[in-house]
């Protein structure tokens, strides 16, 4: 019986969703996609296929690394602002304000052109093991994106740390937990639960910041599409495909975070 109503429910929802004007819209969308496939030039695809895949891989790699590193940096930043004494809180706040108040493009160029032009002046840096890395562009891109993520997420974590109810921490202290244990077992997990919905948005925002590294000559998927455009003199096709790729990645990210969020009990605090 319950099963039957569930089926009826699903059918009703489907029919509600597929109202006539929506069917028309879907048909128009399919028509647009088909005409894009048929009337636009896609013959460059086989030639740039491998380069494109490498570009997507590099974009995803940059996204993953900067999000993880940025989050690790955001935890102390948030903690310092939420509880720290003035001498910890003020620099953390200043860092977040500066990062959030200036364009990522300027930060990126400052690190790459500014810092990158300083290093070669010092012979001991040129001689050190770091030099082969410092000569490339991607470390600067990763550094700038990590700082950016940490700046925005640090602010979120500040609110999340401050939002954990005092009673929870007092109960943990009453159990005789050490400070580190309280942090690890109670405070951090609850703060992360609270920050999780914004974490999805921040990660999508971070994905949308990654194409900026193309301006400092890192070959990500955006740079690949620019190269295709320069080589073939096509305006729309590479950009449309690029937009589609980013939309797909965004969709996957939102879906994955949704699955993670669904596993977390929503009655906290």
């Amino acid at each position: 019986m319950a099963n039957e109503t569930a089926i009826i429910d699903v059918a009703a929802r489907t029919s509600l969703w597929l109202r006539p004007h929506r069917i028309v819209l879907i048909l128009i969308a399919i028509g647009l996609v088909l005409s894009a496939i048929l009337f636009m030039r896609w013959d460059w695809l086989p030639q740039y296929y491998e380069m494109g895949l490498a570009g997507i891989w590099r974009s995803l790699w940059i996204l993953a690394v900067t999000c993880v590193l940025g989050f690790l940096l955001a935890v102390p930043l948030g903690l310092a602002q939420a509880t720290g004494s003035f001498w910890f809180a003020a620099p953390a706040k200043a860092f977040c304000t500066v990062i959030r108040g200036t364009p990522l493009l300027i930060q990126l160029w400052l690190l790459y052109y500014g810092l990158g032009s300083l290093f070669p002046q010092y012979p001991w840096i040129r001689g050190s093991w770091m030099w082969p890395y410092l000569r490339q562009a991607w470390p600067y891109g990763v550094l700038a994106l990590t700082f950016s993520f940490a700046g925005y997420e640090g602010e979120v974590m500040r609110g999340a740390f401050a939002g954990v109810p005092k009673g929870q921490l007092e109960a943990a202290r009453a159990f005789g937990m050490s400070r580190w244990k309280i942090f690890r077992r109670i405070w951090l997990p609850q703060a992360i639960y609270r920050a999780l919905p914004t974490l999805t948005g921040e990660t999508v925002l971070q994905l949308k910041s990654t194409p900026l590294v193309a301006t400092i000559s890192v070959i990500d998927i955006f740079a690949v599409s620019s190269k295709v455009r320069q080589d073939t003199y096509l305006t729309y096709e590479p950009l449309l495909l690029l937009a589609l790729i980013y939309m797909t990645i965004t969709g996957i990210l939102v879906f994955a975070f949704g699955r993670i969020a669904a596993r977390i009990p929503n009655k906290i605090g």
Binding site: V204, Y246, M247, T250
Partner: peptide, 11 residues
């Protein structure tokens, strides 16, 4: 909201 601003600006 799903596509990077940079790509949209170019497009």
């Amino acid at each position: 909201r799903a596509v990077p601003e940079l790509v949209l600006i170019l497009l």
